[in-house]
Amino acid sequence: MHDLNRPATGPAVVRLASVRKVYGRPSSAVAALDDVSVEFGRGTFTAVMGPSGSGKSTLLQCAAGLDRATSGSVHLDGQALGDLNERQLTVLRRERIGFVFQAFNLLPALTVTQNVLLPLQLAGRRPDRDRAARILRRVGLGERGRHRPAELSGGQQQRVAIARALVTAPAVVFADEPTGALDSRSARDVLELLHESVHDAGQTIVMVTHDPVAASYADRVVFLADGRLAGELHGPTPEAVAERMTSLGGWADDAATPLTPGLRR
């Protein structure tokens, strides 16, 4: 039984307060985010969902310091992002944030281990091969460190990307459609890995997804519509998420289609 009223646990790692993000000129301005206030607690797994154009990607970009809010405030790990210049934001993203994208973004000329170590090298930190090996074992690729990305399946490449995101021990990992390019079995493996990273290692993960089944692996789903918060679910089930998305008009085209085959929990 899922508790739909259970609050997020742990102190907030990411906090957005009255965030508004406007694009375009005043005469044709579009508010991608409109007075959004939301927190993501330490050691929690949150999925962000909404119809196309609802502001999901903008929320992720503002929360990660990839884009600046027009007004309101964003705090990450206690740091007000609005107080930082571009160089300081770059350092913060490199040291305190992990990113996982639909495209794995691995460098084909590097080995798996070298890809995982890359964030440490970019941050000017000593490449810790022992840590890389531990994380690769944790994601089930302990024997693949010397392989090149082309020698791995799509699901394995995404697990390398997750290991790379975790190697700096970030305060938060932002994942943008991390299973969008994977088959259902690989997607399930990746989602279970993300779930384990939260509940076994205390990682904080914020994941944008369009898939109700993928969202059901999270502790909480936050819904957006027209740039505004449109409610949330705790302990989500695929059916409850799909019902909410249909009511928002964000899953209407797929509502008659069965939930992702093979991915059901």
Rank of each mutant, 00 (worst) to 15 (best):
V30N: 05
S247T: 08
S186Q: 02
M1L: 13
Q121K: 12
L60D: 03
P178N: 03
Y217D: 09
E232H: 15
E177V: 04
D200V: 14
A215I: 11
H234A: 15
L60T: 01
E243V: 04
D219R: 00
N5S: 15
N5Y: 11
A63F: 03
P51C: 12
P108M: 15
P26L: 11
A133W: 01
A32W: 03
G82R: 05
A171L: 08
T209D: 00
I97Y: 07
V19H: 07
S197T: 02
A12Y: 10
P119R: 09
T111G: 15
R220N: 03
L76S: 00
M245P: 00
L118Q: 13
V206S: 06
L141C: 07
M207A: 06
A132M: 06
V74D: 05
T113P: 02
P51L: 10
A165N: 09
E151K: 04
V173I: 15
V36P: 04
S18M: 01
L92A: 04
V173L: 15
G72L: 06
V38C: 00
P236Y: 02
R138K: 12
G124W: 09
L107G: 07
L120I: 12
G262H: 06
A187R: 05
R144I: 09
H210F: 11
S27M: 05
T70E: 11
A64P: 08
P178E: 02
R264E: 03
H210Q: 10
V13Y: 02
D226R: 14
R164L: 00
E177H: 06
S54W: 09
V74T: 04
L118G: 04
R265Y: 04
P236H: 01
P261Q: 12
L66I: 10
V221G: 03
Q121P: 04
E177R: 06
L84M: 15
Q121N: 00
P261L: 11
L141A: 06
R131W: 07
D219F: 04
G227F: 00
R6I: 10
D219K: 01
S216D: 01
T58D: 12
L224V: 08
D130E: 08
A240F: 00
Q156A: 04
E86M: 06
S52K: 02
C62N: 14
E39I: 04
G202S: 00
H2K: 12
R265C: 01
L152Q: 05
